[in-house]
Amino acid sequence: MMRSLFFGRLQKCISKTVWFSRMLCSAMLLLVSVNVSASSTGLVVTGLGGNDAYAEQFSAQGKIIVDALRSLDDSQAAPAASDSNENFMLLQAENATRDSIVSAIEKLGAKSSSAFYLILIGHGTVDAETWRFNLTGDDLTTEDLVAALATVNAEQQLVLVGTSASGALLDVLNQPGRLVVTATKSAGELNAVRFPEYLAKAMETTVADTDRNEILTLAEVYRYTNEQTQKYYENQKLLASEHARILGDSAERLPLARLGSLRSAKDDPVVAELLAKRLVLEDEFLAIKAKKPDMPIVDYYEELESVLLSIARLQQEIDVATGWVGSNE
């Protein structure tokens, strides 16, 4: 009961389409446990660079992102990090065409996964008719995306468009159960974006994992990426020409990557069992935190300490099982 009340409040907070009240929401975002044991599929696409520097950047970013997503893959069909992984595909360079993308979305979308991820990195443009993702051959348009995504079955979906002018897609891609992230707030932000650079950094390292549970959520990644992007412009003393946006509910519940020892031990049944126990404790921890405003402060920290001790002890077991070492932190 407590948790559902809490989530109701949290979802209300986040579903305000954009995070204008970032601080308020972010304080609450930490109070959510994430189950990574569900099945998922995804497609990462990098578009045309236009020059060598962009082409190299997009290619590297795409690889990092898909590798991170593959850490979620529990299937034994192919090695998780392999390019032949059928649940998480990467399309780049000449392989990334309009038809191949549409086809891949339809193929992955048809699978019975609980979560589906689509991440586009590259240059976007707009004209009077549509937004376009710059590709070899025909560009991918808004209409292509809408039609292809309509075939996706997964309950949870993420469409993350890290391109210029991507804000044009915000409303049109908005659907129940789908989170939409764009690197710009509107079609009018046309300069090449830096958002994917920090997105890749967030997914490659532990910097964005603020609760240190070794599970990166979209909320954590978005918060970090957005903050670093804005800092870039501040540090360069430039007017920011991109303002990322997020639309949809429960970004804090959508995992984007397993990290560290959890990643390497994800197929271990012992670890899975311990993680299930941890999930229970996390819920308990969150329930206490949710009661904080209504509790005497001394009682609150007493209760919190008790559950934190349990978590710490359990975490020691998990760390032994996963081979976690101090340097991971």
């Binding site: 930490l30 240190r212 935190k289 934190l308 001790l309 978590i311 710490a312 975490q315 932190e329």
Partner: peptide, 25 residues
């Protein structure tokens, strides 16, 4: 000890803070 609790309140899986909390207890 109180400050460790504050730290863990924000990041319940921060190992170095967990370790300190366990040592306190």
């Amino acid at each position: 000890r109180r400050q460790v609790l504050y730290a863990l309140e924000h990041a319940p899986f921060l190992r170095s803070a967990q370790k300190l909390l366990l040592e306190f207890n």
